[in-house]
Simulated assay, not measured.
Amino acid sequence: MHEPLPHLPPTSGDAIGHLLTRAWNVQGSPGQVFEIIERSDGFTGVCDAAEYFAPYEQWPERERELLALCRGSVLDVGCGAGRHLLYLQHKGHTVLGVDSSPGAIEVCEKQSIPARLGTAQALPCEDGIFDTLLALGANLGLLGGREEASVTLQEWARVAAPGAQVLATGRDPYASKGPIHSTYHQANRDAGRMAGQLRIRIRSGALASPYFDYLYTSLAELADLVADSPWALGHTIVNPHGGYGVVLNLKD
């Protein structure tokens, strides 16, 4: 009788970069490469990686509405494959992307998009030079958590020019109904975390990223996080499915 095959864990590595490289190699064709998002309670979601390369016409309406407000030099925090920067570059903006994934940086460079390795809390940029910061694709999640958000918002203000703005999208965690999500929210509260403070990792093939925190907040929770920061909550765009867009304006 044959011995059963061992159950092998995924290899830890740059799963996001691996995913984007695979999608780039098929030119972002839909249905070819899929991103698996694994939450710490075992819940998983699947997204078509072609979305990272989708043209402007296919972007959510709230992203297009926010990008119409873009001005001056632009920093994209968590730029991924760089689709927003590619569009803005063609519009004449000076742009820079920052991402923690070496593979994402390589994919940006293949498209002649300037990008650097860094994180939302440690931007590889000089002080006071960007007129617009982007955190689209629900990248308000990069605020991480209550304490992390304070550090992150200060860092975004450090690189912002006077009168700068953040154009960002997020997701209300309470729009996800059902006992699986409500139980996860309560477990977070019991641990002293925000309800929508997800602990997730990205899977691509046999690779898995390290787990990291990614924050979903209601608009009321976001307003509370921003209140004591260098930013003021401005224009908001809400859709009925829980997604939203916001403008944060740098305080005088």
Score class of each variant (00 low, 15 high):
1 M>S: 09
3 E>I: 12
4 P>K: 01
9 P>A: 14
9 P>N: 12
18 H>A: 10
27 Q>Y: 13
28 G>L: 08
30 P>R: 14
39 R>Y: 13
51 E>Q: 15
53 F>D: 02
54 A>D: 04
66 L>E: 00
80 G>W: 12
91 K>D: 03
93 H>G: 00
93 H>K: 01
101 S>T: 14
102 P>G: 04
104 A>F: 04
110 K>D: 14
113 I>G: 07
114 P>E: 11
120 A>W: 05
120 A>K: 03
123 L>R: 06
125 C>G: 05
127 D>P: 14
128 G>L: 14
129 I>A: 11
132 T>V: 08
132 T>F: 08
132 T>P: 02
134 L>H: 01
139 N>F: 14
141 G>D: 01
145 G>C: 14
149 A>N: 03
154 Q>S: 08
160 A>H: 05
167 L>H: 00
171 R>Q: 11
177 K>Y: 06
179 P>S: 08
185 H>W: 15
196 G>M: 12
196 G>W: 10
198 L>E: 00
198 L>I: 06
200 I>Q: 09
205 G>Q: 06
214 Y>F: 12
217 T>I: 12
221 E>S: 00
224 D>K: 10
226 V>T: 07
230 P>F: 13
230 P>N: 09
239 N>Q: 10
243 G>L: 10
243 G>Q: 09
244 Y>K: 04
246 V>H: 01
249 N>V: 14
